[in-house]
């Protein structure tokens, strides 16, 4: 457990490269010792090194591979042929895996542009349940790409560059929200608007069943947004929305939501905003180091607990892709910007 906590949070005080260098040093220093106690230290360093390599994500680049290959060479020199072989395979596998992921994200983009040309359906053509499932598939794909360390780094320095998958995930949330607003407001006829409104309420109920809190909130915040909420809605529908809003009531630090999340078993897509907020508070409220220069591990322990609960939910949903619905979503690219949404809303109800 402590090792897990270390592996999750070490990036807050040392870079992966530095850590690997230090472990290599430690391994080299003790590997040729005669004393069995010292020999054991080198073994420990080696096994931790393997775990570190295993958990590497975006940091895995050519220079790191070269660095790790030095160890392979050394293992060979020491006559540890089996270890050398296993270690080399692990490093290369990790490297290729990462390269493949880069390729894959390119592939996804191509696919979505193809779908644009076949677009012909509207939201109302599909069952709410199916729509919710397909939303969840898209969410899950992005959620699973988020590396735990990115989330930690983001809470510290809010760098988009170092948290690419997290940035994509939040951008997706916003796009989805604007997309929902657009689908409602683009109808001039209030009856049509109401139909979409009701449809989104139904979709939310299914999202809740799927434990997809991310999409649930994206849709909820769309229906709650001022351009939409200032318009007239049938009483039973706006009341239904109010009921659905209870889940994310911010009182008592989102108690309702936290409770719901605690009772959820994976797969689940949590609302990452709360995770980021918790991490931000922990970061601001606790020093990185103590006055004597020692690393504040109690802080890392708190961070680990929050991140570990996020890791727990990472699991695939087993739905089949529905190309028609995905094409209708078109990656939620067809939306009107916030300002225009306001203008439309004001035209509809001056």
């Amino acid at each position: 457990m402590y090792q897990e906590a270390f592996l999750t949070t070490y990036r807050t005080f040392i870079s992966s490269k530095e850590l690997i260098q230090k472990l290599l040093q430690r391994y080299t220093r003790f590997s040729r010792a005669k004393d069995p106690k010292r020999k054991k230290l080198s073994k420990n360093a080696f096994s931790l090194l393997i775990r570190v390599v295993d958990e590497l994500c975006t940091e895995m680049d050519e220079t790191l591979v070269q660095l790790l290959m030095q160890l392979v060479f050394q293992l060979l020199c020491d006559g540890e042929l089996m270890l050398a072989k296993i270690f080399r395979e692990k490093v290369l596998e990790k490297f290729h895996h990462h390269q493949q992921r880069k390729e894959r994200s390119r592939h996804v983009k191509l696919l979505s542009s193809y779908q644009l040309s076949t677009k012909s359906h509207t939201l109302l053509d599909f069952k709410p349940e199916q729509v919710a499932e397909q939303m969840t598939l898209l969410d899950a794909e992005l959620f699973l790409t988020i590396e735990i360390p990115e989330v930690l780094i983001y809470s510290k320095n809010q760098s988009e560059e170092h948290s690419p998958h997290l940035t994509k995930f939040t951008a997706h949330f916003n796009k989805m929200s604007y997309w929902c607003c657009t689908r409602i407001l683009e109808n001039e006829d209030p009856k049509e608007r109401e139909k979409y409104y009701v449809r989104f309420l139904k979709i939310m109920k299914h999202l809740r069943k799927l434990s997809n809190f991310n999409s649930y909130l994206a849709v909820l915040s769309a229906l709650n947004s001022s351009p939409i909420s200032r318009l007239e809605w049938q009483k039973q529908n706006s009341e239904a929305l109010q009921e659905l809003s209870m889940l994310i009531d911010s009182s008592c630090s989102f108690r309702a939501y936290r409770q719901a999340l605690a009772e959820t078993s994976p797969p689940c897509i949590p609302y990452i905003g709360i995770i980021l907020q918790d991490l931000t508070f922990i970061h601001i409220g606790n020093p990185d180091n103590f006055a004597d220069g020692n690393i504040n591990f109690a802080k890392r322990w708190q961070q680990f607990h929050i991140l570990d609960s996020m890791r727990r939910f990472k699991m695939n949903y087993n739905f089949k892709e529905n190309p028609k619905i995905l094409a209708m979503f078109n990656n939620f690219e067809d939306y009107i910007c916030e300002e225009s949404l306001w203008q439309i809303s004001k035209v509809l109800k001056p």
């Binding site: 809470s155 940035t167 939040t170 949330f173 916003n174 929200s177 604007y178 909130l217 994206a218 915040s221 769309a222 947004s225 905003g273 709360i274 995770i275 980021l276 907020q277 918790d278 991490l279 931000t280 508070f281 601001i284 916030e338």
Partner: peptide, 9 residues
């Protein structure tokens, strides 16, 4: 804090 990115929320 931490939720700024979720614009609509």
């Amino acid at each position: 804090a931490g939720q700024e990115r979720f614009r609509t929320l």
